[in-house]
Nucleic acid binder design. Sequence first.
DNA 1: TTCCGACAGTGGGGTCGCAAT
DNA 2: ATTGCGACCCCACTATCGGAA
Length: 515
Amino acid sequence: MLLVTLVDVSGAVAATRSRSRKTELLAELFLAAGPEDAPLAIAYLSGRVPQGRIGVGWSTLREAPAPAAAPSLSLHDVDAALDGLAAVAGKGAQAERKRRAAALLGAATEAEQRFLVGLLTGEVRQGALDAMAAEGLAAASGVPAEEVRRAVMLRGALVPVARALLAGGRAALGAFRLTVGRPVRPMLAGTAASVAEALTALGSCAVEEKLDGIRVQVHRDGERVSVWTRTLEDITERLPEVVEVARALPVSRCVLDGEVIAYDGAGRPRSFQEIAGRTGSRTDVAKARALVPVVPVFFDVLLVDERELLDAPFARRHRELAGLVAEENRVRRYVVEESGAGADALAGAEAFLAETLGRGHEGVVVKDLGSPYSAGRRGAAWRKVKPVHTLDLVVLAAEWGHGRRTGKLSNLHLGARGAEGELVMLGKTFKGLTDAMLAEQTERLLELSLSDDGRTVRVRPGLVVEVAFDGVQRSSRYPAGLTLRFARVVRYRPDKTPEEADTVEAVREAGAGAA
DNA sequence: TTCCGACAGTGGGGTCGCAAT
DNA sequence: ATTGCGACCCCACTATCGGAA
């Protein structure tokens, strides 16, 4: 199949907002590709490259060569070029990657170049990625979408499922079962504004500690142990402590879900930054381990010996977990039975949240005790509750938006008042803004404009915004040495002047309170 | 008819490893 | 030794479609 065929379909998918139409277009293309080309077509149209890390990003692709006049590239040509790129390493790698990328782009037409650049920078913006591609695959093969989705969740990837389905038909999906040694997509949590809201939504539930670390899925088969992240990266080699804990469990096979954290000398949880640094270290694991030893803390189990538990209710899965894993390697929890739901249960759950925060953790996750493990879904069955802080900050500048925000000032630079009354930048945010707010802030900020370099508009201090955030973290980027974690705009404060905005000192205190 | 679950889009800061400077 | 880049970790929120209620 020619790349141009796929690029045309991507354009058509982007041009319609109807999801059912997108699904039809994808299905037609997958059928046309045939078993030979469909895996590549599906990978590219779901915004992925099979090679994974290829070391090519925006910077490498900045200056594209003149486009080809006529399309000639096939999907296999692209695949071969990406194989070549992925294999480049060592001295001169940057230049060699640039050369190879330019050769590929030079063989592509203008439209093909745009698609390839988007694909390689993770910005295939056609309003249909992984989940829509799975829908398209289901439509193309005449198999219920639910079965395709489940197979993808259990295999952890779409392309192998597509290959099997197109070659072997619906019956081939039976092979995709929970398999020890092969990770499934983890179940994710939705949010709730308060414990009360979560309890009302869920009935019989467990309120569990939410730990601020790295999500891990651990598989053990005999002496063989593997550890994966949320996106199913294999990090077994980096976390020997986790392997040791798994090997010591009194079973021969199991699949566990949990979080890796670290404690300081006083037994308080260390910051996310420290844990992430440790988990990311792979060159000298022994040294990293000595500095920041980690501990796995599990909250779910998907398989024990021959018992597959994905579809078992959470209450049953937790009984299995408690029988398998020592208390110090399990999250603390507070159980609310439906029969006991009421003021007492709410008070108990809220007290548990307060204790959890007091121990230095992030918040709680409230989980429906009757729910199965919905691999890969941001299930309504799990709801996280975290405290939110807010401050009033001054807009110092704003960046022009991209995509659907083109022509609107979007990303706000936020400042607090310093000791001398000067404004100190603390970070940026583009979150929480409705279309109406985007339109209004664009107009107001342009009135306050001091300069515009085409990317960033600097403004006179005038606009004050109420910003919500989860906490304060150390920063090497901003002058005060700190920045807000997950900042988002709640509302404008037209009633406040920049002189009435919060101070850096107040931000620091909010951070201390949050920790 | 209205409501709500699921998706995609729009990006944020920190950290590590690698190659270039 | 420092810097730039890519890739990954954590993530919040809004708009929209289309099926459920």
